[in-house]
Amino acid sequence: MPDLEIQIGELTLKNPVTVASGTFGYGQEYEAFYDPSLLGAIFLKSVTLEERPGNPPPRLVETPAGLINSIGLQNVGLDRFLDEVVPLLEGIDTVLIANIAGNTVDEYVQLAEALSDCPGLAALEVNVSCPNVKEGGIAFGTSADMIREVTQEVVAASALPIIVKLTPNVADIVSMAHAAEEAGATAVSLVNTFLALAIDIETRRPILGNATGGLSGPAIKPIALRMVWQVARSTNIPIIGMGGIMTGTDAIEFLMAGATAIAVGTANFVNPLAPVEIVKELEMFLEAHHHTSVREIINVVEG
């Protein structure tokens, strides 16, 4: 059996297959299908300081090989997250990573401080890339200076490893990853969704209640893969690669392009077993190619 274990800074993942924030709730919804402890890590749904009702519906539009969403970070807020959500996580035997989103640098800091001592959490993912909220989110993620500032402050506020989740809606993804690396992030997640629009031609209005949303799914995979590859070639920061991963082949492409781990997002909706099937397909690929460790296929693309 090939060794699937990977290391991201001080985090040890039993395998490189994780699930993306916002697509897996807090782990409970998929327990009917498989034991979430089989995953390398779970990126939990975003938490904000205050409760957020989320965006007005409609929140979803299906597109060719893709899905546009504008959920708007609906969540119960920090206090209830600590009281109600954290106890649910007990018993999930894998790396659990909270995803934090703030309107201001200070809010990111408060969230990071409050979650640092939270039992069961192994790391924090800093969401500077949500396309569906007015403040914070993507407004931070499109400026290298803001990424640097948020990352520095959060790293200083928390003893946990910090992973910065970047938006692809920028001219130069490499400079964004550089900023996170310089500011002390342990890893970057690449990529969040692509800002997108769908129009109802009868009403001549956007379909989504929030007008724009974020595009995910196989439609974005080649672009996400290119960004992972570019960042891997120009930085030394570990990458969690994501964007339209549906199969083991997709996952292996991201690993070869330079991702140390991958996250399954929209595929969870299509095939609830996708993450565990990807683990199996990865194992079979490694065996077929006589690799003893998954680490042998990470960042191996030349040219």
Binding site: T23, G54, P57, L60, I71, Q74, F269, P272
Partner: peptide, 27 residues
């Protein structure tokens, strides 16, 4: 009826307005 995402309550995409916020049509 609504457009569903995950169908199991994880994605919060299929919500409708209820008196105390939003509820998921799927679950």
């Amino acid at each position: 009826e609504n457009q569903l995402g995950c169908g199991v309550g994880a994605c919060l995409g299929c919500v409708v307005k209820v008196h105390d916020g939003y509820a998921r049509v799927c679950c």
